[in-house]
Design a protein around this nucleic acid. Sequence first.
DNA 1: GATGATTTGTGCGTATGTATC
DNA 2: CGATACATACGCACAAATCAT
Lengths: 91, 91
Amino acid sequence: MWEDRRQHIDPRRIAHLWAQVAADLRTEISTGRLDDGQRLPAEPDLASIYGVSRATIRRALGVLIDEGLLSRLTGRGTFVTPAADRPQRHD
Amino acid sequence: MWEDRRQHIDPRRIAHLWAQVAADLRTEISTGRLDDGQRLPAEPDLASIYGVSRATIRRALGVLIDEGLLSRLTGRGTFVTPAADRPQRHD
DNA sequence: GATGATTTGTGCGTATGTATC
DNA sequence: CGATACATACGCACAAATCAT
């Protein structure tokens, strides 16, 4: 992971770029390819990894934070929320 | 060097600011005006020297680090990679 | 060893320009 | 024409590593 994820993103698809990034990260987390508590690359790094802007990355991360999958700590980074700490979603 | 480099940067040029900063530093290094192992000014200082933001400086430095011309050490500074330690780039 | 200053690492929020719908 | 979305750029605050005192 974190080499080059541009192949997972297709600007011509109908789905928005931020939704495609969010979906890709969500899969990596739920399948366990991203470990609990693991720190993600910095937002500018994620932007170049996915070939999108930082604004798009922030929107994608925001979605996963709302879902409880990620936690953001100012000055430290964005981390995979440990499964035990994740709230159950009931909407 | 390190007095005032704003004259080397022109916001109206088509080239991006980070690319102009990177180009200027690359010239200073390859011409030997910056010695091997020499420490650059801190990022906030470079920002005021070039008249751009620290984010722009960091992007420019990142380019030169990718090219193997600079090395960054947390808490210490950014240094000119000795020519002997520089990987040969030809792509 | 403790403290404070320095420097890089990261995230937060915003503004502007451009392209597209 | 207005609304939406992305890229560049700005300034700021806080965290962590390092170094001098």
